[in-house]
C-alpha cells in the first residue's frame, strides 16, 4: 500500500478498509486499494472470493457495511440517489453477463444512457456518439441488430460501447473475458488497452484469467480471504514466493 502516498491527487478511486458480509459470510474484510488516473488495475481472485462484490460496492449497487469508498473525491457510501446517479456518469460498468437490454436494438441500447444523462443533446449529436462508440469497438454495422443476433464476443463489445458512450473517466470490468474463446478474449483484452490509450481512462478489471492479467494489467491486486493479499506488477508477482500468489501465476 506504500504507493498510495505518492501521487495523491491522481487517485480516482480510494477504497479503505471496506467490509461487506452476507449473513455469516464475510466476503470483504478490511479491503484497501487505490486506482490512479489512466491506470489498469486487475483484481485477481478465485471465483466467489468477492471480486464482483467489490466493484458493485464501488458503483453503489451493493451497500458496503463499513469502510470508505472515495470515487473522484466523492464518498460513495454517503451520497444521496441524485448525486450517486451524477457520479455514475463518470463510471462505466461492463457486466459479466453484458446485461444488454434484449428488448432493444443495439442503437437503443447505446442511446439509453444518453437519453438519461444528456436529454438536451441533438439527434445528430446522439447519432454521432453512437457511431463513434460502435466504431471504437469495431462493430459499426450492427447498429440496427437485436442483441440476440450477436455472438458472445460481439455482445461483449456492444456492452463495452455502451459503457463508453458517456465517455467515463473510470471503467469497471467484471470478468471481461470469462466465457469467451481464447482468440476473442485476446481481442477484448486489446480493446481494453485501446480504450485506456485513447481515452486515458482508469480501469479496475476483475478477472481470474491469467492471460487477461498479463495483457492488460499495470498493477495486480490479489484478493484472498477478503483482503488485498498482494499488490504488484504481474512481472513482480510472477516471481513471488507467496503460495497464494504463486497458485495463480504458476498455472500458465
Amino acid at each position: 500500500m506504500s504507493r498510495s502516498e505518492e501521487n495523491q491527487q491522481d487517485v480516482v478511486i480510494q477504497v479503505t478498509e471496506l467490509c461487506k458480509s452476507f449473513g455469516d459470510l464475510h466476503v470483504l474484510r478490511d479491503f484497501t486499494m487505490d486506482l490512479r488516473a489512466g491506470e489498469n488495475v486487475v483484481v485477481l481472485g478465485r471465483s466467489g472470493s468477492g471480486k464482483s462484490v467489490l466493484i458493485k460496492c464501488i458503483i453503489g449497487l451493493l451497500k458496503a457495511d463499513s469502510g470508505s469508498i472515495r470515487v473522484l473525491e466523492k464518498e460513495v457510501l454517503e451520497l444521496d440517489q441524485h448525486t450517486l446517479d451524477a457520479l455514475r456518469v463518470e463510471v462505466g460498468f461492463l457486466f459479466q453477463s453484458n446485461a444488454l437490454y434484449d428488448s432493444m436494438t443495439v442503437r437503443e441500447n447505446l442511446e439509453f444512457p444518453l437519453r438519461r444523462h444528456m436529454a438536451g443533446i441533438s439527434a445528430e449529436n446522439r447519432d454521432e456518439r453512437v457511431r463513434q462508440a460502435l466504431e471504437d469497438v469495431g462493430l459499426g454495422h450492427t447498429v440496427d441488430m437485436m442483441p440476440e443476433e450477436l455472438s458472445g464476443g460481439m455482445k461483449k463489445r456492444i456492452a463495452l460501447a455502451r459503457a463508453l458512450i458517456l465517455q467515463p473517466k473510470i471503467i469497471l470490468y467484471d470478468e471481461p473475458t470469462t466465457g469467451l474463446d481464447p482468440i476473442t478474449a485476446r481481442e477484448i483484452n486489446e480493446l481494453i488497452l485501446q480504450v485506456q490509450d485513447r481515452y486515458h481512462t482508469a480501469s479496475i478489471i476483475i478477472s481470474h484469467d491469467m492471460h487477461c492479467v498479463r495483457q492488460t494489467a499495470n498493477r495486480v491486486i490479489v484478493l484472498h480471504e477478503g483482503r488485498a493479499h498482494a499488490v504488484g506488477t504481474s512481472a513482480e508477482l510472477s516471481i513471488s514466493s507467496d503460495p497464494v500468489v504463486n497458485s495463480f501465476f504458476s498455472e500458465v
Binding site: 449497487l61 439509453f112 444512457p113 438519461r116
Partner: peptide, 18 residues
Amino acid sequence: GSMKVTEQIDAMEVSGTN
C-alpha cells in the same frame, strides 16, 4: 424476472435510471 437475472436491472441503475 429475466431482466433481473441477466443484470439488466443493475445495468439500468448504473446508467442512472431508476
